[in-house]
Design a protein around this nucleic acid. Structure first.
Lengths: 150, 150
DNA sequence: ATGCATGCAAATTGTTTGCACTTCA
DNA sequence: TGAAGTGCAAACAATTTGCATGCAT
């Protein structure tokens, strides 16, 4: 649940052309709580009678991601997922066996971020990333499934 | 550069059938220093006259990854990459603009691993993962390119 | 008006699968 | 011998692209 008007404002000030389709897509992204793949966004916007082509969805998501209005993430579902960039920086714990996704506050990564920046002169794009592993229940049940997912 | 015989031994003791094709693939993975995608492995093993089908390469890589003889990683090249699992746990810093890949010792992630395990009862599969961002040179040159890569 | 965006359809790319045949254990 | 593995070709899914048309600025 993000402020649609605020997002529109960000788009306008970025200079990106605000078309009917992009408006629809942004509305869907704002309403949505969490992530969505291009296909999912497409499904949602297709419900409204003024539908949008799938390729347009793809193009819009990429543009908006480049402007940092959306962030892109790989949650291990073999497709890119997107989310409105909000104020709280957060990341994700993804269970590779049951698919559960938990949020991880950015503070957990602050030290690592600093160390990498200092020691390697490397600026990590730590805005939204996924950490794969096993949740408590699945760990109990024993290993198996997808191994080194990254 | 990994010890081919040692790897074969691991495969044998895992119970996996040791075929001509898998031997060839493993030899290629051992000779190779670093990662390779299925396609790259395929290219390499195709040079030898006793070539291997691409689908066989895919199937072998998956099997070997499940046995933890190989680790799989997404380095942002939009294809899975594989590497022989060695002794030193390490991860990667991937520059999203120039593509440079640097190694990051596991020690950098130890604290995070522990915190996540403790606070979320979540066991991160921290064997080999990629951290995207910008290297010093590219950061200097200014932003652009791929944004939130995860 | 003019250039950026869209729709449509077709192309690409990475990866997977069905099936008859081969081969390792 | 029998189950597991292979080659081949075809299927797939996610994403991209060419091009004529359309619409914000």
């Amino acid at each position: 649940m993000h402020d649609f008007e605020a997002v529109l404002q960000r788009v306008r000030s970025s200079g990106l052309r605000l078309t009917r389709q992009r408006r629809i897509i942004l509305r869907a992204m704002c309403d949505l709580d969490g992530h969505a793949s291009a296909e999912e966004v497409y499904q949602r916007v297709s419900r409204s009678r003024s539908d949008v082509d799938l390729s347009t969805v793809y193009r819009a998501l990429v543009r908006l991601r480049d402007l940092r209005i959306l962030s892109q993430i790989d949650l291990g579902r073999s497709c890119a997922e997107f989310e409105i960039v909000g104020e709280r920086r957060h990341h994700h714990l993804v269970c590779v066996s049951c698919g559960t996704v938990m949020e991880l506050d950015h503070s957990y990564l602050a030290a690592l971020e600093e160390a990498v920046r200092h020691d390697f002169d490397f600026d990590p794009a730590f805005d939204h990333f996924a950490l794969f592993g096993h949740c408590a229940e699945c760990a109990k049940r024993g290993p198996g499934f997808r191994a080194g997912a990254g």
